[in-house]
Simulated assay, not measured.
Amino acid sequence: MRDISKKKVIVLATHGFEQSELEVPVHKLAEAGATVHVVSPEAGSIKGWDKTDWGSPVQVDVLLDDVNPEEYHAIVLPGGQINPDLLRVNDAAIALIRAMFDQDKVVAAICHAPWLLIEAGIVDGRDVTSYKSIRTDLINAGGNWIDAEVVVDNGVVTSRNPGDLDAFCEKIAEEIQEGKHDRDAA
């Protein structure tokens, strides 16, 4: 994994995040040197979903209302069905994702989390992937859906499912290391 020391990463989640899709990026990005903060609309802890049942709680580091996107280099959006569905109707969550995108920072979404990219209005004209059940949603939002492990389009990193977490995390670190992404072309 690339060295991303002195970089700060947001992992935005709420109850129902897919356990591995939050925990593995937090661990791997921190292992690569980044400071990683779990950001949520809820204080205290949020509970994950682990394949077929409720998983373990994860401590929230920063409340969504208190986060300053200018202090971070990337945002990671874990999937699962519940987490992104709850967050896509949260105006503050969508505003944070859009702010990170508008500041030319890395925006990464896995599994069902590209729903959040649709809500933030950043899919149109981009190459993306996702869990297969939201493929049509991404296409209808103007995305060029590609059946691939990980797809990168100018700092927007998408991955289709938890089996691809190592490649997903590596691409996030690579994009963070590259720095800001000029998105005028998309």
Results as ranks from 00 to 15, higher is better:
V128P: 09
D137S: 03
D164N: 12
A92I: 01
Y131C: 02
E174R: 08
I122R: 01
R160Q: 12
A141R: 01
R135L: 09
I139M: 11
S133V: 15
V123C: 06
E175A: 12
I176V: 09
D147C: 03
A120H: 03
G125L: 10
V107C: 03
I172W: 06
E175L: 09
I97D: 00
I122A: 01
F168Y: 14
N161L: 13
D127L: 10
T129N: 02
E119K: 09
H112T: 07
F101Y: 15
F101W: 11
V123I: 15
W145T: 04
R126W: 07
A93M: 08
D147W: 05
T158N: 04
A113C: 12
R126Y: 11
C169N: 13
Y131G: 05
N90R: 06
D147Y: 00
F101A: 11
L117P: 10
D91A: 07
A109I: 02
N144K: 11
T158D: 09
M100I: 10
N144G: 08
S130M: 07
D102K: 15
D164C: 13
D166F: 08
A167C: 07
V151S: 02
S130Q: 06
D124V: 14
A113T: 03
I118L: 07
Y131L: 04
A93E: 01
I172M: 09
G143I: 07
N161F: 15
I176K: 00
A93R: 00
D104I: 15
R160H: 12
P162H: 14
V152W: 01
L96W: 00
T136N: 14
K180D: 06
W115M: 11
A113E: 06
R98A: 07
S159I: 06
E175N: 09
N144P: 05
G155C: 06
V150T: 01
V123D: 01
I172F: 10
D124S: 15
L96N: 01
T136S: 13
C169Q: 00
